[in-house]
Amino acid sequence: MSKFTRKGKKGTPAVSTASLPDIIFMLLFFFMVVTVMRQDDPKVSISKPNATETEKLEKKSLVDYINVGTPIDTRFGTEPKIQLDDAFAEVVDIQFWIKENRDRRDEAEKPLITTSLKVDSDVKMGVVTDIKQELREAQALKINYSVNKGSALDNN
């Protein structure tokens, strides 16, 4: 009888946390794999238009972004501005920027470089047309109009 009586009080045993590191490591590896280091902070606010006939951009490392929209910081005015990498730029800077980006890449990758235009819905086409003319002059002919998935008829 006395063989089974408990000696003293025993609380609930603590939950083993030994597997916690494993779980955390699993999450860690997931995020390490999917991470692409953030290239540039947006300085202009962009709400992209909708479209249905979209394609995915294959290689992120071969895509250069041109952002166009109204500056987030209102000190820079309310007119749409162009942002290349981390700074505001003018239309005339684009050709030089394209050349710099091209020099950075391997010879084999150069024809695959895509320029993605992230443009706010409300921007007028004048700016976009100017950018496109500059891109043509710089021989950066592969472009992508960045959009959100959705019906294009809702745009207006």
Partner: peptide, 8 residues
């Protein structure tokens, strides 16, 4: 990033 691809 998704979008409409075009060749200029």
């Amino acid at each position: 990033d998704i979008g409409i691809l075009r060749q200029l």
